[in-house]
Simulated scan of single mutants.
Amino acid sequence: MTPRPTSDLRIAPAQSFAPAAERDPGWGRRRLLAVLAAATISAVLLLTGLGYAIHFALTPAEQATPVPAELTHGNPPSGIRPDGSPAAGLTRDERRDRIAAAPMPPAPPADAQPAPPATQLADPITIPPATTAGPAMVPSGFPRTPEGAVAQLAAIETTVLQAMSIPVVHAVHEQWALPGGVGPGEWSLTGHVRSFLGAARMGAEKDLRTVVMATPAAAQVKGTDGPDWVLACVLLEVRAVIESEARIGYGHCERMRWQPIDTDDPNQTGTAGGRWMIAPGDPPAVAPSTWPGSEPAIAAGWKTWVDAEPAAAAGSHDPAATAPTAGAGAAEDRG
């Protein structure tokens, strides 16, 4: 797949938006009680309560916080024309804040539950593979493209959610979030981990009997501003097993910025002299959490995740193999 040009600012076309939260309020306890009770009402499950904990912790809370009127019901953010091009007179930070704050389609909690597949096919988005292990054991080495930013965000999310550990989430945030954004205590992923551990009555880390699997299933690029800044969104299928199993779809967005590598720091790894990191600024509008491949997921703009074929190993004689794409040089814009 040939990456789209990213020399100017873009924002995805508006759909039928409704008010969305300015910040992700975390995963609450109420939403899946009825669903789980309908799915299994065995005495064992009712006695342990652990099955409920999966649902309580993995269900996005209701999006109740209002957003400004200019950002609701499909209106493009102020300063962004309907075609997605930037209006004159905006600073770089203003453009990026407008993209981040633009609301996404709302998704009621029921949309995150397993559902029949849609009758239409979602557009694909081809995601490059990791080529190295980055700080805090997060896969890294993705190219300087919008798809590379999406891949890096997915690697950050899956590392955090599968560990379900407060120490791990702090370590990941320290190594992968640039200064100027929310701290580890206010990060939405920290809130989700804390909710899960609290609902399951665990300590600072999940116990050895608990398994959490997070698999990227869909993604979208909400907007770009030049080659070094992307508003990336990933839709994960999250599966948690304690004494019963629960599955939901979970959507999450972050500002991502290409950060040049300090070659004098042995702890920094990346590709072509840099890596994607979480960019500073207020958290973006809440992403719609929908079941991957469902009608609501397609309506929300999620594209089917397709893994790119890994590049051929050195010395391979496979004529179909392609050489790795060379990333662009170090970014001049460090904002």
Rank of each mutant, 00 (worst) to 15 (best):
V238H: 01
D8F: 04
R4H: 07
T145C: 06
A240H: 00
A240E: 03
A61Q: 14
T159F: 04
W187L: 15
D207C: 11
M164G: 06
H170K: 13
P284G: 06
P108L: 13
L231V: 02
A171T: 12
E157G: 01
G273R: 02
A154E: 06
G327W: 07
I298H: 11
I298E: 09
P292V: 11
L161S: 02
A64V: 15
A240I: 07
T2E: 13
A326E: 11
P179K: 13
G134S: 08
R96S: 07
E243A: 08
R194S: 12
D123M: 09
F196R: 05
D111I: 00
P296V: 09
A101S: 10
L9G: 09
V67L: 14
T132E: 12
P117H: 05
Q175W: 04
H173R: 12
S316H: 00
G180C: 13
S7C: 06
M137T: 13
A171D: 14
T325A: 14
L33S: 10
S7I: 04
I261G: 04
P296F: 11
A218W: 08
V286H: 03
R30L: 14
P105S: 11
R257G: 09
G49M: 10
G51Q: 08
T271N: 02
P86V: 14
Y52G: 13
A219M: 07
Q220A: 02
G26L: 13
C233V: 00
P319G: 04
L46N: 12
P68S: 15
Q15A: 15
A311R: 01
V172S: 12
A88V: 05
F196V: 01
G327K: 06
A38I: 02
E157R: 07
P129N: 07
D111W: 08
G329I: 01
G274H: 05
V211C: 04
F56M: 15
L46A: 15
A57K: 06
T65G: 12
A177M: 12
L189S: 12
L46D: 10
A122C: 07
A217L: 04
A37S: 14
T91N: 02
A321P: 00
P86C: 06
Q175K: 15
I54W: 09
G226Y: 08
Y52P: 00
S140Y: 02
R98C: 02
I166K: 13
T263M: 07
T48Y: 07
P216G: 08
F196T: 03
A112S: 14
A331V: 00
A69P: 03
A112W: 03
V44W: 08
G249P: 00
Y52I: 09
P292H: 08
Q120M: 09
S85N: 04
A100G: 10
P13V: 11
G301R: 11
D265H: 05
S244W: 06
A61D: 13
D307N: 12
T322R: 12
R209M: 06
E94C: 02
P66S: 13
M1K: 07
A314T: 05
T304C: 06
